[in-house]
Nucleic acid binder design. Structure first.
Lengths: 225, 225
DNA sequence: GTCTATATAGCGATAGAC
DNA sequence: GTCTATCGCTATATAGAC
């Protein structure tokens, strides 16, 4: 006993499962602790509140992803200015790899979708807070890669590029039905390549910035699991 | 009396409001009828069940949009093969216009986001059912505009293009915060132009299909203050 | 039928023994 | 760190007056 690390993870695992299915409001702490096999009071001891659990469950997966993103971007820019494809790969690859994980990936993405639509300002500020510096960092890199774009246009296109990513990550079954199973979400490498070349072309639309050859060559070594 | 049309709309208006804020499960029929100012039993008379209300509230807004989409696409193709920009405009413009409506637009999009993450197979099949023929029709048009793309690649890119749209439509406040209010959602024309040129370039990535100049003003007319 | 009062049940959160 | 016991609160349901 006294395995506090275990207890925390047990709670977070159960939270990820239950929140993804029922939302935060749809899960009582009693259901949560019973599922996790821990005592009711341990939630407040470790996380302070139910909101604290939701936040911790969110950050547990998002933080490593964002750290990896920044590492990849640093690496891409260390050898000089990075092209659009490299920047986008640094942004997309870590998240795509997690989403491809059959158990936690889907569950986590679904939980995020829940968080996104539930009321409660604390979740909103968590999203903002966790991504603010990542956005800033990537905006700088993209600006360097696409100096012709105005600030407004750059941000607009980042918005679109994020939309592509979010929709791909959240795509559980619906879009697969629409597309007749043509898009296989488990094909991470292929999906990543397609996303990067699609969005890179969108970023370059109407600019004089030359495309970096063909999409595949732009340092896209999709790390498949 | 016997204002059945009014009663139906009163219920649907209240449903849109309450469902968007609390989800379907979070709204009791009593709360719904009380908000609408109608009798409890009228829900079952007009819609059969609570699910029926959700479905009707969804279809009420989606059907006209999809009809307008098909009309616009028909018109674009009546004068010969439509280019990518025209097809995308037909797809995006009607939805964007609704989302720009300050009252019902935001409320409806939020309700959709709720529906999307709530359990319940009936909502899932409603999404699929309402969009299936639209997707098919637009896929055909895009295939004609981009004959070089394989079926798999076309669908993948449609998926991305839909992601851009969905993310833009749902973007209530979050992305505005990320982008420091640079992207003004109420600037429908500018948003539409930017979306169309971004996604059209993505569709053309790696193909020999020539870009349609700066079609339909969809070039980079970036900054309108 | 309608309305108010009360009972019940479940919730998140806390205190204090161990 | 864990656990039992309990707090105060809010919804819902029921009962009974009118």
């Amino acid at each position: 006993m006294t395995q506090s690390a275990d207890t925390k993870d047990l709670i977070l695992d159960a939270a990820e499962l239950l929140f993804s299915e029922n939302g935060v409001e749809g899960v009582s702490l009693r259901a949560l602790t019973s599922k996790a096999g821990v005592n009711l009071a341990s939630v407040h001891y470790h996380f302070g509140s139910k909101e604290g659990v939701a936040l911790a469950a969110f950050c547990r997966r998002v933080r490593p992803i964002n750290e990896e993103r920044l590492e990849l971007l640093d690496k891409a820019e260390s050898e000089g200015a990075a092209d659009v494809e490299s920047v986008l790969t640094a942004l997309y690859a870590p998240a795509l790899r997690l989403a491809g994980s059959p158990v936690h990936g889907r569950r986590f993405m679904r939980m995020c979708a829940r968080f996104y639509t539930e009321p409660g300002a604390y979740l909103e500020s968590a999203f903002t807070q966790e991504f603010a510096h990542v956005i800033t960092r990537f905006e700088g890199a993209l600006h360097r890669a696409l100096p012709d774009l105005s600030r407004l246009e750059l941000r607009r296109r980042m918005h679109f590029g994020i939309g592509v990513m979010v929709h791909t990550l959240l795509d559980s079954n619906r879009t697969r039905q629409w597309t007749d199973d043509a898009c296989d979400p488990s094909d991470i490498g292929g999906t990543l390549d397609a996303m990067v070349s699609f969005v890179a072309a969108g970023f370059r639309a109407g600019t004089a910035t030359p495309a970096a050859g063909t999409a595949g060559g732009a340092g896209i070594k999709a790390d498949r699991t």
